[in-house]
Simulated assay, not measured.
Amino acid sequence: MRARRAAIRAEYAVEETEAAEAEAIENQQAVVSVRVPATLAEALRARAAAEKLPTSAYVRRVLVRAVGEPGEPVMTESRVEEIVRRVLRESA
């Protein structure tokens, strides 16, 4: 059973890599591969599912927000205010 799971995972990884490379070529994007702790990967998948997004799209959104535009601070005043409003709303 483990060997079958490993084979399925390997096949899936190859397919995902091929799809990502094709998308990168089409959209003039670069493919970035990064290792993260399993708990972080699961948290990313869960948040992506909650927003009904593919994990790669969710991670791309997180990275764009984290990096922002060149010269732009990562945490602007309006972003902090937005976070505070969301936390207050969710904790009510």
Rank of each mutant, 00 (worst) to 15 (best):
1 M>N: 10
1 M>C: 12
4 R>K: 11
4 R>H: 13
5 R>H: 14
9 R>W: 03
10 A>P: 04
10 A>S: 12
10 A>V: 15
11 E>D: 06
11 E>N: 05
13 A>H: 11
13 A>L: 14
14 V>N: 06
15 E>T: 10
16 E>P: 11
20 A>N: 04
23 E>W: 02
25 I>T: 12
26 E>Y: 07
28 Q>N: 04
30 A>S: 10
30 A>Q: 07
32 V>L: 13
33 S>Q: 08
36 V>Y: 00
42 E>G: 07
43 A>K: 06
43 A>P: 00
44 L>N: 01
45 R>N: 09
45 R>F: 05
46 A>K: 10
47 R>L: 11
49 A>R: 10
50 A>R: 05
53 L>T: 06
53 L>G: 03
54 P>Q: 07
55 T>G: 03
55 T>P: 04
55 T>H: 01
59 V>D: 00
59 V>R: 00
62 V>D: 04
66 A>G: 01
66 A>F: 08
66 A>N: 02
67 V>R: 03
69 E>L: 01
70 P>N: 00
74 V>Y: 04
74 V>E: 09
75 M>C: 09
76 T>K: 07
77 E>T: 07
77 E>M: 05
79 R>N: 06
80 V>A: 13
80 V>S: 13
80 V>F: 05
82 E>L: 13
83 I>M: 10
85 R>A: 15
85 R>N: 06
85 R>T: 05
87 V>F: 06
87 V>E: 07
88 L>T: 15
92 A>E: 11
92 A>S: 10
